[in-house]
Design a protein around this nucleic acid. Sequence first.
DNA 1: AGAGGGATCTTCT
DNA 2: GAAGATCCCTCTC
Length: 263
Amino acid sequence: MPRKRKLVPDSDDKGQNSRISKTPTVEHQDGKGDACFAVSKYFGDEKMKPFRLGPDFFNQPCIGLAKSFLGQILVRKLPDGRELRGRIVETEAYLGGEDEASHSANGKRTGRNVAMFMPAGTMYVYQIYGIYFCLNISSQGEGAAVLLRSLEPLQGLDTMRHLRNLRRKEKGKALKDWELCNGPSKLCQALAINKSFDRRDLASDGEAWLERGPDVLTAQAVVAAARIGINYAGEWARKPLRFYIKGNKCVSVVDKAVEREAL
DNA sequence: AGAGGGATCTTCT
DNA sequence: GAAGATCCCTCTC
């Protein structure tokens, strides 16, 4: 008997349109390198085999790409063959040129940010505060890119937890599943993404790629809010260029005011 | 639940 | 020399 897949939230969902909103149903074991097994387990049916997203997906305007990322699945293949998977639940659009919050504001092009000017689908990984990394994907548009802010962990949670704990104190509180990738630098830690990925192509890379997720999101399932940590950017700091899946537990910052307004 | 501060170092001025 | 698209721990209410 084929498993039924829910594509659109039920009407009584009350905004809890996500898999980890209340009760996590994610896999809790590592995929030990057997990709086919792990994938078929999550996707269930043969006809819906994971579909790797290619150049056409990435080659779209920045805001559209930022929204299109939601629900898609980021995959990281480690050197030992293990595959880690997370569903993208929060992104930010950085438009380049006019966008004062963008590293490429006013056309600024430096050694650090050249990846933002490379073809759509190029990864831009930069180090922040000397210790953390953030992952962006370049989009259509000069100097434009999308920051990935959080993932809902799906596969390889034990490995993610181990990678995240490398930097934490022994005495610290144990990480919940939903805390593994709920921030731009947390997801880089959990997926072992560092500067070596900078300027590489997410559409063709062998160690990181994107798969089409099973869910189709309705417009009401997506919240558009102000971006985080860019208060220096004046009016651009307030523009609704952050997008997240409403009700998802793994979103790093929830904007209650915006969500109220949407009703 | 929220505020505050330290860590830590590359990048660009 | 200063700032930064963050995270985590500690303290307080």
